[in-house]
Amino acid sequence: MSAKDVAHHVITYRNVFILLLICTGLTVGAAYVDFNVPKSMAGALFVGLTIAIFKGYLVAGNFMHLKTEKKIIHYILFLTVFFLFVLLAVPVLWHIDLVK
């Protein structure tokens, strides 16, 4: 790795760090905001989880180098995320569909 590469990396990591701190601030702030609409919880959930997903993307993409990772790793993770979605969504859908 050349010195220029390193400098570039370090700048990226610093920027990501700052961005993560801002997002943490936002997410805490958003939780305190009263959305003043009947379905305020849904709004807060949406905002909170969107920020969390964005933060997750920052960590995985930069610190874990997923942005420049090899295809085989991506394939494995796509597969995993698909099954994760099945695991998260289906029990909930099933729950909603229960015969009362």
Binding site: F83, V86, V90, L93, W94, D97, L98, V99
Partner: peptide, 18 residues
């Protein structure tokens, strides 16, 4: 095989859609 598991649970009061 990851998307068939609830066929073990047909008699748990499962709704029609599922």
């Amino acid at each position: 095989s990851f998307v068939v598991w609830a066929h073990h649970m047909f008699l748990t009061g499962m709704g029609q859609g599922m």
